[in-house]
Computed example of a mutant assay.
Amino acid sequence: MTARPQITAPGADPRSPGYAPAFVADVLDDALAHDCRVYSITGLQGTGKSTIAAQLVALARERGVRAMALSIDDFYLDHDARVRLGHEVHPLLATRGPPGSHDVALACEVVDALREGRGTRLPRFDKIADRRLPRAEWPVVDGAELVLFEGWFQKVPAQSPEALADPVNALERDEDPDGIWRAYCNDSLARDYAPLWSRLDRLLFLQGPGVDQVPEWRWQQECTLQAAHPDRAAMTRPQVLRFVQFFERVSRHGWPLLPEIADRTVRLDASRRPID
């Protein structure tokens, strides 16, 4: 049985989990200096987006700013909806993660309510069960002065149809030989997400060393998830290695483009330490 490594959150300060306090303060200063209502954080899987979003919420509250964190993962389509897509379009669409697996209209509705200071329910997704929690279990908030909205592909543009021709990994080669799945995801990225991206006031890109770092970082995330829920079964390492292939195409496409798209880019080393 493979030993699960002990994981701490990413950062430059080994004495405490998470990003170093000075860096968190710098990011919050950036959000407040630009009078953001919705400050977005993007980066490859495992970059530590959820970690820094939680740190930013805590620091903002210390400063008297009502803040909350939101993730693109909160808006996954429920399992049954994705299974229907898998039957109707392509089997790979039953797996959450890529463009096309989110309820973008719901995301826009929630972000609008938060921006306007209205009370709203926040969707919650159980990643181990792979299901959206029932609406009655969604927390209710009264709005926020600052929303930290994190996700792995914010504002990444769609590819040209020609760029979809060659598979980028074994998953595409063996399970999507005709390109139906990747075309659906690409079309969804081009068609559905622009209204959501338009609601983001400022975008921070945490640029890790590259896509090849993702499998290890994503495995660390899964170990952390398993440690938090020892009575439930998270993904095994082989399952994680397959899962990250669902994200690889958009990640490889977006990684070199986002520094020109994002309002601010901070490079990270393999230990997720900011090097800029």
Rank of each mutant, 00 (worst) to 15 (best):
D13L: 06
R15I: 15
S16R: 15
P17D: 06
G18T: 07
Y19T: 05
Y19R: 06
Y19F: 08
Y19C: 02
A20R: 11
P21C: 09
F23Y: 12
F23T: 05
F23P: 02
V24D: 02
V24P: 02
V24C: 03
A25F: 04
A25I: 04
D26C: 15
D26T: 14
V27I: 13
V27C: 10
V27H: 01
L28I: 07
L28D: 03
L28S: 00
D29F: 13
D29N: 12
D29E: 11
D29M: 13
D30V: 09
D30Q: 13
D30S: 13
D30Y: 11
A31L: 15
L32S: 06
A33G: 14
A33F: 15
A33E: 14
A33M: 12
H34N: 15
H34P: 11
D35A: 11
C36A: 14
R37T: 02
R37C: 03
Y39S: 14
S40C: 09
S40Y: 02
T42M: 02
G43T: 05
L44R: 15
L44C: 14
Q45K: 05
Q45N: 04
Q45L: 03
G46M: 00
T47I: 12
S50D: 12
Q55T: 06
Q55N: 00
Q55V: 09
V57F: 02
V57H: 04
A58L: 09
L59A: 14
L59T: 12
A60S: 04
R61V: 10
R61N: 14
R61T: 15
R61D: 12
R63W: 09
G64N: 04
A67L: 08
A67C: 08
M68R: 04
L70C: 11
I72P: 10
I72D: 08
D73F: 07
D73T: 10
D73R: 06
D74I: 03
F75R: 00
F75Y: 03
L77P: 05
D78C: 02
H79C: 10
D80G: 10
A81G: 06
R82M: 10
R82E: 07
G86E: 02
G86K: 03
E88L: 12
V89W: 10
V89A: 12
H90Q: 08
H90K: 01
L92E: 05
L92W: 08
L92R: 01
A94N: 02
T95Q: 13
R96N: 04
